[in-house]
Design a binder for these strands. Sequence first.
DNA 1: GAGAGGCTCGAAAACGTTTTCGTGTTGAAA
DNA 2: TTTCAACACGAAAACGTTTTCGAGCCTCTC
Lengths: 345, 345
Amino acid sequence: MKPKLTLKQIARELDVSVSTVSKALRDSPEISDDTRQKIQAFAKLYNYKPNNIALSLKNRKTRTIGLVLPEIVHDFFATVISGVEEVANKRGYNVLICLSNNSFDREVINMEMLANGSTDGFILSVAKETQQKEDYHHLEEVISQGMPLVMVDRVVNDIICDKVIIDDSDGARNAVQQLIDNGCRKIAIITTVDYVSVGKLRTEGYLRALRNNDLEVDQDLILKIEDMDNSQEEIAGFIQDKEIDGVFAVNEQFATSAVKALFDQGISVPNDVLVFSFSDGELSRRFIPSLSTVNQHGAEMGAKAAELLIDRIEKAVADENFQTAVVKTSLVERESSQKRKKSLV
Amino acid sequence: MKPKLTLKQIARELDVSVSTVSKALRDSPEISDDTRQKIQAFAKLYNYKPNNIALSLKNRKTRTIGLVLPEIVHDFFATVISGVEEVANKRGYNVLICLSNNSFDREVINMEMLANGSTDGFILSVAKETQQKEDYHHLEEVISQGMPLVMVDRVVNDIICDKVIIDDSDGARNAVQQLIDNGCRKIAIITTVDYVSVGKLRTEGYLRALRNNDLEVDQDLILKIEDMDNSQEEIAGFIQDKEIDGVFAVNEQFATSAVKALFDQGISVPNDVLVFSFSDGELSRRFIPSLSTVNQHGAEMGAKAAELLIDRIEKAVADENFQTAVVKTSLVERESSQKRKKSLV
DNA sequence: GAGAGGCTCGAAAACGTTTTCGTGTTGAAA
DNA sequence: TTTCAACACGAAAACGTTTTCGAGCCTCTC
């Protein structure tokens, strides 16, 4: 248990000054070859590593970015994390992760914790509760402190900052269009309550697709779920005795619940009803039937967000020149949305 | 864009010294009520928050713990994170997350990054590649520097430190016993190569269950998968024309692949073959048929690991008094392991 | 031989805190 | 009036760096 080596200790050991050691290790031309080599050899031998905290204090840069997410046990956010992490590491940054668990209070606390100097900037996907309350003072706070903020996926339009979103509405429209092209005429949607920004947008896309194809919008075929915990029962009740030939769900959980509900009623997917889902995760890939989905490219979104944030931290981009990057979704068509069974691989 | 408020600025503004401000804010009795109130009011008004980095440097404590995981898009590790995060926050710590992507090199780099002062201690689940190489010098390194290390789930026995594991072998034995109790006699296992510690232990549990029941061990019924990416094909080939009535899989991915392979051969789960899996995640819950699993209680493991680590950081526990906490698994029996269909809810 | 200039290196400040110690002022006791 | 304690506050060091500036010394050039 040796305490960590510092410049001061090296200096004392080698009988030079701290500044000399520092310069030698950074290959300053001020230092003679002799002493430089001596110092570098010593440092290497005892595995000297500069103390990051001291550097952060000195430079007033932590080379750390904060990532605040509503949840993590969710493939989408997990992929966002890995995207952020990858480019952050590539550019020499650490990632400090906090979870809000969709709670407004925790989100505020997390932001305050991270804003007290631990972090050079934020990537945030706002909590559901925050979107409901529409209270964004904590975001304005950190921005007014000069901390760069990039919002991902669940963004709030009123806040001026860089954003990374997907074309939720178009993605949904394409998915529903695909269902229509595959023969569906009575398509139900299972979505979230409107204050969840992405849920609202996806609902819009659904409506647009119907209108584009002169299909009637039936309010009875629209289910907006508030409480994730009881979604299975709610969906089962909703599906019950509905005359439908297609279902569009805004996430994998809703989609699998729908398939299950249909299955329990003796209705087969995809033979009787086609299903399209949002959020391409492991669940969709492994489900039987495998689910057709709108891929959100979470890793790409996370990567883009990290790029934007670090660019701004390093002032590589002009002030006030905020951009909203739109990551394109793509349709992944699998078994659940196609009547004919695919031939076995 | 106001730069963050510091003690020095408050001091200048109120025409007192920095030390007075510091003491006033910490309610030191040295300071008179008058000035204390004045300073506190000012600080509150302008929302002063002490700079965390400066505190870290001063106290040589960062109140941050590092969490190094092999992957994240995986329900188990995601739940571990949320467990760690929860108790860390509760005890006033931040969590710095790094992903090794199962790469030895990245693991080493991550540990070095986090060990240079950013962190008071580590929680680690070692990368697959590290277990294969059996090179643990980076772990010994951080330990010898006096940094507490807690290993989770994928632990290495040679390293002396606190550990949090589950009863992998017993969990597997119980699951296989359940299959046997439910009538299975020819049970296949789909597991990982042996150098993955948990895979090996689960395989042991499987073997023990068979022996306990005087069932013959058939090497043809044991599949050890090296390459996750091609596991689906490998499993399909393995299942092909095997005479089995039960499958035990060491993770959800293998389990769903097995069900799929059986399904493609016209074999029904659970009517013809029963399936039991390890790692209780969303996939298991939502799959049709829902999968019976051995619940690993990831959140609990993460929480326990964080408790152990923080206790050690805060010296609440005697030196050298390392413990290995075993979190009990529990069987979650769902549809896939029971012949009779459950009555509909 | 004197000034100029180039090499090396060290002292000190700075980043934002906390804490120890010292100091000046006040009030009361002697 | 002197002395002493209590009180209220400030100076300075420390945490581990980097960087600016200055200083000492040697060598070269007139």
